[in-house]
């Protein structure tokens, strides 16, 4: 992705316009649009199967789209000529099931991509990886294998692994859904610190309390469309759409 001359940091860093996506005959996204500004924390909520995770995967070009446009820093993500490597240096993703590499230690998990993909020198990457492991409060676990860590610890390693690519935008796909209630907190506080540092974050989450506290903007999706969106203060108190109200009444 070449630096796009038309894009300036005061424009949305991620701009999704009328995106459609089908898996076979099932239309998962039916014209979704949203904007994320630099440093903003956007939370996407909604019932299961409403297309939230698919939307994140489209932004990262892990899956293609059928119609519409997704711009990241002014560059079309689904342009066939796009260098996906350049995109993924800018947009990093953390998964629900952590997906750490089980045959590598925590430190190696964090170091692999910067060394192999970004071709940075090993010493420099190792120093950075140790800093990141410290940042996610896992000092002393550098040489542990994922199988030896709890879910919450693995998820924090996964966050450190994504941060090691020094992305501009981070995507979190239900990152606390597979965790015990006690370990949810430690992962959320890690994300909160990232948000406080000014990282642009797009979170798909079921943690309403967290979305209300950390989110700058909340999107509610159902059946592949965005039903309603707004800043948390108005969204949670004065939801207008009956579908949003019903969802919130069930979950809160």
């Amino acid at each position: 992705m070449q630096a796009n001359a038309a894009w300036t940091p005061d424009q949305p860093i991620v701009s999704v316009r009328d995106v459609h996506k089908s898996y076979g005959k099932v239309e998962v996204l039916k014209g979704v649009s949203l904007d994320v500004r630099k440093g903003e924390v956007v939370c996407i909520i909604g019932p299961s199967g409403s297309g939230k995770s698919t939307l994140l995967r489209c932004i990262n070009a892990l899956v293609g789209i059928d119609k519409g446009s997704i711009l990241v820093e002014g560059q079309e993500v689904h342009d066939p000529k796009l260098d996906k490597l350049e995109l993924r240096k800018k947009v990093s993703m953390v998964f629900q099931q952590y997906n750490l590499f089980p045959h590598k230690t925590a430190l190696e998990n964090v170091m692999m991509a910067p060394i192999l993909v970004l071709k940075r020198p090993k010493e420099e990457v190792e120093a950075q990886a140790r800093r990141l492991i410290k940042k996610v409060r896992l000092e002393g676990k550098e040489n542990s294998y994922p199988g030896e860590l709890s879910g919450g610890q693995q998820q924090r390693v996964a966050i450190a692994r994504s941060l090691a690519m020094t992305p501009d935008v981070m995507l979190f796909d239900e990152v606390t859904s597979a965790l015990d209630p006690e370990t949810v907190k430690e992962v959320l506080s890690t994300i909160r610190e990232l948000a406080d540092d000014g990282m642009t974050c797009i979170l798909v989450t079921h943690e309403m309390g967290f979305a209300r506290e950390v989110g700058d903007h909340i999107y509610f999706t159902e059946k592949g469309v965005i039903v309603e969106h707004g800043p948390p203060a108005t969204f949670f108190k004065e939801a207008r759409d009956p579908r949003t109200r019903e969802f919130l009444s069930q979950i809160l």
Binding site: N60, L62, R88, S92, F95, N99, M112, A113, R161, M165
Partner: peptide, 14 residues
């Protein structure tokens, strides 16, 4: 090997 391993590697630009 779970496809999630491919996916996470792909998201890291391998």
């Amino acid at each position: 090997i779970p496809t999630a391993q491919w996916e996470s590697a792909e998201s890291l630009a391998f």
